[in-house]
Amino acid sequence: MIYEQPKCLPAGDRYLLIEFGNEMNLDLNFTAQGLASAAAEAKVKGVIETAPCFASLLVHYEPTLIGYDDVVREFSRLLGSLGSSDDIELESRLFYLPTLYLDPWTKACVEDYCAKIARKVPDPELLVQQNGLKDTNHLVRLHSSSEYWVASLGFWPGLPFLMALDPRARLTAPKYNPPRTDTPEGAVGLGGAANSIYPVATPGGYQIFARTPVPIWDPTGKRPAFEGSLCLFRPGDRIKFVPVSREEYDDAEVAVKEGCYDYTIVEYQKFAVRNYNNWVSKVGGANNARVST
């Protein structure tokens, strides 16, 4: 359900949570990101930061500078100025990430899990079964065909929650039960309807089937592509996984180690929700931006 009126919920003395609905729906994330970007532009006194998520926006404010009621009023006003979610246009960088699908490292990780923790269908084969695909090559073609939308970052600093923008490439998968105790750094995974990339080796629950050699997290903060941050991505960015050969993967890995890897980033595009929705209806995406899980 999409709420007629967004719900403003108090959260302690310094936060406000705004819920736009209670379903996974790209339109709700566009609204959350549109509001976040409008708030950043408006520089409302006392508003410290916002964090968009799938269907909500968390607002962090300084109560000695602005009261709770005024934060609610300001955000309702900003939301009104956004108009319908169709009118939202967002700055959106596009990252091309070299990706080795069906790589040996995620394969070894799954085999290790099967040997030590629980037997399961290997992750790529499970995705093929669950989504009615022909074979793992079909999985690779389909997964790499879409751009992915960075809906939010969390769980670990810089870890992106991604949603496929092309409705034809929307895959779903159950999560690991019990979770893995380890995941290779750079592994690409899918759980529920969300995709992600593991910034560092961590425990995890998503089905894994590919790996990128380029860092998306850099605690030294010195790589130019990170623009002073320690994380490569921001909400509202887009990612395209580019299938590469093992040789290209190794070359990129060497370049990363030697500090001369050049990220491919397109920075001159805006994401227009209306254009996107028109395109989705043209390619035959059922139910517009609705994501089934």
């Binding site: 359900m1 959260a11 302690g12 310094r14 936060y15 949570l17 819920e19 209670n22 379903e23 996974m24 964090a51 968009p52 998520c53 799938f54 269907a55 909500s56 926006l57 968390l58 962090h60 939010s152 969390g154 929650f161 529920g192 309807a193 994501v291 899980t293």
Partner: peptide, 21 residues
């Protein structure tokens, strides 16, 4: 609730956490 919230009663669609939650 819609099933994308998750199976436990305390599951909700991923959302931002306030400090002190």
């Amino acid at each position: 609730k819609p099933k994308e919230h998750g199976s436990l009663p305390s599951n909700i669609i991923d959302h931002g956490y306030p400090l002190g939650a």
